[in-house]
Write a protein that binds this DNA or RNA. Sequence first.
DNA 1: CTGAAAGCGCTAACAG
DNA 2: CTGTTAGCGCTTTCAG
Lengths: 326, 326
Amino acid sequence: MADVAERAGVSAITVSRALHHPDRVSERTRAAIDAAIAELGYVPNLLAGGLASTNTRIVSMIVPYVTHGVFADAIQGASDAFDDTGFSVLLGNSGGSPQREETIVRNLLGHRPAGVLVQGANHTEATRRILQNAAVPVVEMGTLPARPIDMAVGYSNHEAARTMTRFLALRGRRRIAFVSVPPAENDRANERLRGFKLALEEMDLAFFPELVFHTRYGIPEGREALAYLLDRPEPPDAVFCASDLWAYGMVSECARRGIKVPDDIAITGFNDQELASETEPGITTIRVPRYEIGRVGGELIMKRIEGLAADKVVDLGFKLIERGSA
Amino acid sequence: MADVAERAGVSAITVSRALHHPDRVSERTRAAIDAAIAELGYVPNLLAGGLASTNTRIVSMIVPYVTHGVFADAIQGASDAFDDTGFSVLLGNSGGSPQREETIVRNLLGHRPAGVLVQGANHTEATRRILQNAAVPVVEMGTLPARPIDMAVGYSNHEAARTMTRFLALRGRRRIAFVSVPPAENDRANERLRGFKLALEEMDLAFFPELVFHTRYGIPEGREALAYLLDRPEPPDAVFCASDLWAYGMVSECARRGIKVPDDIAITGFNDQELASETEPGITTIRVPRYEIGRVGGELIMKRIEGLAADKVVDLGFKLIERGSA
DNA sequence: CTGAAAGCGCTAACAG
DNA sequence: CTGTTAGCGCTTTCAG
């Protein structure tokens, strides 16, 4: 910056001002500075700027996996929200472990981000404390936490699961299976299970522990889940899948086995990914605002950075998409 | 850090050493410092550290889209490569535009990353210059550029497309259609088209401009492409899809229309995404090292940061996966 | 509209 | 093994 200043015949602070508040600098000096910057290929050192101003253009974002379509969409949403603001996303992925999340949060906060976006509300107590003390806007994404760290944007996994389960019950289903990841790992999964159980209770249906199947994400895993469930002494007449991938595997496996969906068995998904409309019949599922969660999360952060008031908890809702598999 | 030093009864530099070179500090003072850090909840300011040492633990990564599975895998790979190193990924997404990429590169370099990972080799001249002058390791991912900026990791899109096209020709296909994004946008697409044309020539087959279809990524777009191609006066006997999504749409559309794959028409994909094995018949496609590209890219950066020699260009190869659709 | 001085929080280099 | 000094490149504050 000193070089630029010298070449433009001004002091460093004037260069700084030309960069951040072009209107506070005369047109002539600004032109000279711009020319000098271009000639020298000057790239401002954001570390120095951030240090001096205690004020960066970094937003940290922590997700469990980048490869899971739901989170990739959220990252894209946040990234888009920062378009043309000069803000960038500093990414961390926790692999779904609150312990790793804590390590990552600690590390990412070292970069003094202007805000933090974090997936879910399942944090260690230390993570909560650290984030609260960080004195930057924090958005928890994807759920509506009872006790938000700061802000949150998402939808109610509990209500979504409840809605879907009631839908199945109202269609006359009596033995509803539940397929999910191990709930200990994952607060979304927990919420969905709670909503599922509540709906069963409300509809006077029994909960069958032997019809609960935990597995990893994936289409083949859906097939395995179906095989397992059909092997029970009393198989289910419906399956609530907590992800479309499993539902896809099941519907395609049913086609292969000649099992009629939804006549013989109803199958529902979750997330409404691109796949969900590709089976025959299409998968009845819950559409969630994957991209919008990241986008609105980013916007909430930006609002607060600009000193504006921002909502504490934004419920983006969900939608039951009926396609034929239930 | 001053507070920590005071509380531990040492100077700031000793705290710094305890953090970065624990073995250069006596066990007692280290314990005292660790205690002080824990009590105070001290989070080191990486901006100050980076400024003082001209040495950050940030690696910038620029991809066209986060939501495209291929790039999401690469991000995950790079992120995993940095596990337990304290390095983080600073993400930029260009939307596929070299012009936007230039803006992003400029911005991300301001954070003085220790390395840069960038998708593809299709950059503006200014981007090339800026990256070369940045004096940090740079890895171009996903292609094997003729004129790499610094390092590269990927596979030959040209050879992959050529291999697949020859495969179709050897199976007796004569009128091979080509479905891709508009090539101007995208160097991978360009490379694939070149490989496709070369193979046609080698196999004494004609290239039919009317059998080239450009569209966006997506399953429905695959269906549209198929409809278009079947509507030609002389329809193709094979379709080379530059992405599995289109191939998926086509194979499922063929099933719907009662067209026999591969007897009536052969269909091939590219990337080997999860979908590719889900159609009936499965999609014959090119498996590319999506995750490994990010992973190895990250490792190359790390090697160079550690002062080790690193390969200039790493060819991770590709593999033709034969599944039945061709 | 422009500048001088001071300092952001840390680490390199040198000393002891 | 520990400390002192100086300075990284920028912005804040206060002047002019």
